[in-house]
Design a protein around this nucleic acid. Structure first.
Lengths: 232, 232
DNA sequence: GGGATGCTTCGGTTACCATCGAAGCATGAA
DNA sequence: TTCATGCTTCGATGGTAACCGAAGCATCCC
């Protein structure tokens, strides 16, 4: 009743459906305007504005003025990590939203999770990295191996430079659609950036879905092979 | 409004102050009765009962009937992990509860965090393990080294046996009082169990505080030395 | 300047839900 | 059986906060 941090305050902020929708929309990693977020949440601009100032006061969001626009983004990767965990937990407890919309299949296949790849493709990528011995899986924790170091070097990714005090290099992020882990952390982000830079895929507008090109999918599957080739 | 898991539902459950207090009380790791939880939350039994069934429906709690008592506990370590993260985030955003009660200093010093040691002593323990090279810190991620393996073996802890698919061996858990990490995961639990089994400390009744004996504190400090000896 | 766009503030309405006391039900003790 | 304890259910109450439309303020464009 007295000691410790006030978790209820943060949880209440996330607990409102409109605010939760806004936060999930920002898991796309891009900063969005108040109007865009109002649309994502399905409320009027007036309501959205009130929500956004609450989220900002609560330290979950940051705001940047740019001309007459106001861009909002998640405050930092700690907030994104919390939302990921929350989504993972909600998925395992069966708290799915009622209407899986028409573009849901695309989201299950490949989507962006704040700044890294999630969905079927994301899970496959981590599986492949573990199979090849690039990443060591110890329970839920992930560690980069020496051979993994070399593998990423060949792709032009310097894993050593990705180590930061603020954020883990490898992070297991529970995937809500697959209910298995995909790769987050700075390495997960670097790999996603690599995929986009190489033009293997592009983002769907106004969605977190990622669409691979035919050629991009071929190269992705070749780069990250897995043992048992099952097709859905 | 459409895709993905319903994070708002889980967050709403945690977002009510009474329910948050109950959950934090259960972070002590022990199962508690409905009456005890009502006391912890500061509500009547009727109100508590309603909250508890919501939490159980939401999959955050499990219930065990035992005679005419009903014992509640956190559903699993995933829930505990989420609450830890939430508390860590709340602490860094300055969302502290208003009245740091009289026993607050004892909590800052040493307390239980679901099933492992937290507070000043918990942070010191992890610092010491990193200094001695038993645990490798890569950003926010933690990994056990070979020398750490041997060190824990000498204490009678077989780290190999602690690896589980469900839960990480080492987990960095942001400490709300120190704002630095302490050691969670199955290894963190094993070390805490070791400390209690050796009689270095005992639990305060009705609190998450851990009180070290004079001799226990001496042995703890000898076992986990740190470089710069600063005293509060 | 005049007009359009983006957002915030204000006032009022509505709906939900936390809360409690009292009554009901189950379990265990005498 | 009879009583006590632990908890749930019921019904009623109250406060909080989400919501919207309209008005106000700021920024940019012409």
């Amino acid at each position: 009743m007295k000691e410790g941090p006030d978790i209820a305050r943060i949880a209440t902020l996330i607990g409102d459906p409109a605010r939760a929708n806004m936060l999930m929309a920002l898991m796309g990693g891009q900063a969005l305007t108040a109007t865009e977020l109002a649309g994502a949440a399905g409320v009027t601009l007036a309501t959205a504005s009130a929500h956004l100032s609450k989220l900002e006061d609560g330290g979950l969001l940051t705001q940047r003025k740019q001309g007459r626009h106001r861009y909002f983004a998640l405050a930092d990767s700690a907030v994104a990590g919390l939302l990921e965990d929350l989504a993972g937990l909600a998925a395992t407890r069966g708290h799915l939203r009622h209407r899986p919309g028409p573009r849901d299949p695309a989201l299950r296949r490949a989507r962006i999770c704040y700044d890294h790849l999630a969905g079927d493709f994301g899970v496959r990528m981590l599986d492949s990295l573990i199979e090849r011995g690039a990443i060591l899986e110890e329970g839920e924790a992930l560690a980069l191996t020496g051979s993994g170091h070399r593998f990423f070097c060949e792709m032009g990714i310097d894993a050593e430079a990705l180590k930061t005090p603020r954020r883990p290099l490898c992070r297991a992020c529970l995937d809500w659609s697959e209910r298995r882990s995909h790769l987050g952390g700075t390495l997960g982000k670097a790999l996603f950036d690599h995929i986009m830079a190489e033009g293997l895929a592009r983002r769907e507008p106004d969605s977190r879905a990622i669409r691979f090109t035919r050629e991009g999918e071929r190269r992705f599957l070749a780069l990250f092979p897995v043992q048992d080739a099952d097709a859905a």
